[in-house]
Design a protein around this nucleic acid. Structure first.
Lengths: 225, 225
DNA sequence: ACAAAAGTGTTAAGAATACACCCATGT
DNA sequence: ACATGGGTGTATTCTTAACACTTTTGT
């Protein structure tokens, strides 16, 4: 570490991956297997080698540490580039973070990580570096993203009920919404369409299933919320 | 360049600095003094050394190349981190770009640049790398920023008329706005206040001067445009 | 008196909010 | 028959959009 041949800071990537589990927002964490912070939980990330782009490195490292494939996510976007991890003894670093949204993701332990799993936001344990701050930052971004894009599609199944949609919004925004107004407004945005199918679940009226017109990120003209 | 001791891509910074000149939006460019693209115009930027943060490096390099001080700008924010400059023969690089807004900025030639000057957006010459794309990207960001913050303050003098304010919006958004609706709406946002002063200029009624309540970035609850 | 930009108000359409009851099903 | 979540409409307020004439000054 002395006699460092580098001329420029080391470049890291990391990712904040969200998904819904039981209508609650969760974030993907992995348990570190090396110092610094050996044994602590952290966002999946690592050093970018010379021959990869940022997105390639993020994809590879995410897979190596959590067995999650970046391209199975519905939305991936660059979040922010942070300076020096607090507490990193190896001098300055630059960390390019991405934000990802997905569903039905099952992380696994890998040779490079002890465990990987999604944690409810409210149950996130003590994290390495200042990754808690980064998760908050990502959540803020996600919240604003929901207001001017259809990004919520990435968190929902292909067919979903209005209640699921509303609950997803509530989970991300962290507040309750009015059922009638929500439906009226969301339908008027023209992002979704009815299907002829129904979801039967339990002792109550079956719920109509809807689907998004587009499974890629679209920008709204009128903003939501 | 062969036998490269680096393990991770080189980190560059660059900045897209906008200001208004004669009610038109302009961008700060500098003429390159080295290969690649020796002699072509480009956004001011350079390599980040080991001992500086991204913002420190941006500040220093901007000053070295254009004599502009980053901290004399009203708004500075990270724009995006781009992979590899197209055409850079030195292998992969990462370029962290910032967006800056200012007024009354006078760039100068320096030992590290032939010239530096603000160009009207429509007169931007052929640029090194793909810096044209980056300017477009920055302009998009600026446009959306105007809709949910008071960022326009950074482009205007401390005291300004409603016409100046509206013209500034029009210059950035690239479209005409209705005078009465603009004033009504902007005043209702509560960002500015009247002063008791007037701006006299030419053969017409003097214009009342206004000022911003805050000279730092504020986020609106209601969005503009 | 004229030219030039500053300043001002109303109406109509659309969007947001608040709010309570009936419906279809399983047990 | 009851418990459960699904589904629906109206009235009020606020916001947006369209639109034209008078005011004040300098020459």
């Amino acid at each position: 570490m002395q006699d460092d041949p580098r001329k420029t800071p080391e470049v890291f990537v990391a990712a904040v991956i969200f998904q819904l589990i039981d209508n609650e927002l969760t974030v993907l964490l992995t348990q570190r297997q090396r110092d610094p912070f050996n044994g602590l939980w952290a966002l999946p990330g690592g050093l970018v080698p010379l021959k990869e782009t940022l997105l390639q490195a993020t994809t590879r490292i995410l897979h190596e540490k959590t067995a999650v494939k970046l391209n199975q996510l519905g939305v991936v976007e660059q979040l922010y580039t942070f300076d020096t991890f607090a507490g990193n003894p190896n001098g300055p670093t630059v960390s390019v973070m991405h934000l990802g949204l997905g569903k039905d993701i099952v992380p696994k332990a890998t040779p490079l990580s002890r465990h990987s799993q999604f944690y409810l936001l409210k149950d996130v344990p003590e994290l390495a570096f200042d990754h808690s701050t980064k998760i908050d930052f990502a959540l803020q971004r996600l919240r604003s993203k929901l207001s001017y894009t259809n990004a919520i599609f990435a968190l929902l199944p292909t067919l979903f009920t209005m209640s699921q949609l509303q609950t997803a919004y509530e989970a991300v925004l962290g507040k309750k919404l009015d059922k009638r107004n929500f439906r009226k407004k969301f339908i008027s945005l023209g992002l979704i369409q009815q299907t002829s199918e129904y979801h039967m679940s339990g002792a109550h009226r079956p719920a109509r299933l809807y689907k998004f017109n587009s499974q890629t990120l679209e920008y709204l003209t009128r903003s939501f919320d």
